[in-house]
Each structure stands twice: as C-alpha cells, then as structure tokens.
Write a protein that binds this DNA or RNA. Structure first.
Length: 283
DNA sequence: AAGTAGTCCTGAGTGC
DNA sequence: TGCACTCAGGACTACT
C-alpha cells in the first residue's frame, strides 16, 4: 500500500504526538505480522521516550530513550491512526477498537497510536539505534530519492548494466529506496518512457531526466498528503488526495492526457505488478 | 548473477 | 444471496 509519500505523511502526522513523548504501555494483540514481533516488544517499549521519529525509505524509525529503535513497515494495507486528543486540537475520543488493530501504543500525554493492518504484510522490529544501518531490512537500500545522494550521475551509473525493464528497475529498492508501483507508473508517464523498455537501453540523457521527475512526483504527493485508494489514511483519519492527480495509474482504457496525444492507457503485468502507460507517447 | 515467479494475507469488486 | 474468481500502495525467498 503505502509508498514513500504515504509513509512520510504518516511520519509527519505522528511527529507532534510521539516525538518527545513517553510510551506508557503497548498492547500487542498478536504474536506476529509478516514476521514474529521481537522478543518482549511490549516490555522494551514501556516507559521509553521517543527521542526522534525518522523515515528511511518506506520504514518509520522511532528512536527510543533506551538506545533502541523501533522499525515500522506498513506493508500493503497498514494504517496508523492517532486518537485521544493529545495535542488538544482534535476534539475526539478514542474510537472503538477495530478488527486488525494489532498494536496500540498508549502515550503518557493521553494520545493513543493504533497500528491496523488487515493483510499483515507489515512488520515491526527493534534494534540498537547505533546498528540501524546494518539491519537486514535497511542494509541494502539505495539512496533516498529526495536526498543528496540521489542525482543524475548516480542513476545513470546504477541502471547502466540493468537488463530488466525500467519499471522493474525503479521498483528495485536497491536502486532507489521508496518508490512503489503507483509512483513508478506516474514517473515514467511524465518522462515519456515506456515501462517495457530495458533500463540499459535507455539513453543517459533520458535516465538523467528521471531524477527531477522522481523528486517532483514524490514532493507533490507528500504535499497532497499521499494517495488514498482502499486502505490508506493520514494519522488523523483524513484521506490523502494525490490520487486525483494520477495521470495513468488505474486509468486503463481512458484517453491519454498528454496534449494532442490520441493514445489510450494500457495495462500490462510486469513481474507480477500492473503497469499503466500510454503506448503512444511513452517510448 | 541477474531476473522473475511464487509466496504471505484479507477484503473489495465482478460475473454468473 | 452465494460462490468462484481476480485484484490490490510490498518485498522476501527460491527458483532459472
């Protein structure tokens, strides 16, 4: 479900409620999500203050006063909702517990942070903060697309020898970390590049052109609060609204929006994921 | 070794 | 209404 913009939106929503706050208690309602929760997770969270709330790729990282960091991944269907009016501005009480509320953090400021994930592809883990870079899930991630290490020479170099379609290459988190199916489709549309084209076969100039487009699409989506399809909500329960700006994703059989293009949006399946694109103007 | 299916899981939607 | 089927913002694992 959530790609980088959705995860960043969740992080920003959690920031004022969680950063600097103490975890009074954690309710862990099942033994696992995608993997078993770490040993004694609830105990290791209890009484700890969240000293910083960061993001790496699609992972939310909560640094704790104990010297450990809680790693949270939302998988396909994960949501995090805040309740309890901890900032004195929401004016709503705790809603009734729902199915798939797997972990609930109770904060000493009165706030409650609920992790809900029907499909349970999400994950949580705890690791010493000083070892976060070496965690199995984070160690092989590529650069942050909105960070300084992601630039034109890097992407040209990274894709130079990749025989896989550009669509698959950009979904590979080792190449660039945080893009998912929706935003790759939108990026390739804006760049007029066919998702079917082999990465290595695209000119350096066109690969380079992807860099600012990736930054723009992600930045615009963050500014819009992410994209809400089925599951995703911001932490206050509001919908994101970038889905209204999709030009190709989910628009199979609709006319291409490129000026003067008479194409029709197609859907093809590449390595198990749907790619939406205009076969006329994306080459 | 890189590239690609298969896999985990629930729920929504569609067609008969 | 029920049932069978497809599809979904991810990404690890095990094949070729």
């Amino acid at each position: 479900m959530p790609e980088l913009p959705e995860v960043e939106t969740v992080r920003r929503g959690l920031l004022p409620v969680m950063e600097g706050s103490e975890i009074l208690r954690a309710d862990v309602n099942r033994p696992d999500l995608r993997w078993p929760f770490p040993d004694r997770m609830a105990d290791r969270l209890t009484g700890k203050t969240v000293t910083a709330l960061r993001r790496r790729s699609k992972y939310i990282l909560a640094d704790l006063s104990s010297g450990e960091t809680l790693i949270i991944h939302l998988g396909m269907s994960g949501r995090i909702l805040i309740s309890g009016d901890p900032l004195g501005q929401f004016h709503h009480d705790h809603p009734a517990p729902e199915k798939h509320d797997h972990v609930v953090f109770h904060l000493t400021n009165g706030g409650r942070v609920t992790f809900n994930d029907p499909r349970r592809f999400g994950a949580m883990d705890l690791i010493a903060t000083k070892h976060i870079e070496t965690h199995k899930l984070l160690a092989f991630l590529g650069p942050e697309p909105l960070g300084n290490n992601f630039d034109e020479p890097y992407l040209v170099q990274a894709l130079k020898t990749r025989r896989t379609p550009i669509k698959s290459a950009l979904l590979d988190q080792r190449v660039v970390a945080g893009l998912g199916n929706i935003y790759v489709c939108e990026v390739l549309f804006r760049a007029s590049v066919s998702p079917l084209r082999k990465a290595a076969q695209i000119s350096d100039k066109r690969i380079a052109s992807l860099v600012p487009i990736i930054r723009d699409v992600l930045s615009e989506a963050i500014a819009a609060g992410g994209s809400s399809l089925k599951d995703y909500r911001q932490t206050d329960g509001e919908l994101g609204y970038f889905q209204h700006n999709f030009r190709v994703y989910g628009r199979e059989a609709e006319p291409c929006q490129t000026f003067d293009c008479k194409g029709v949006i197609s859907r093809v399946v590449q390595s198990g994921r749907s790619s939406f694109y205009c076969p006329v103007c994306q080459r």
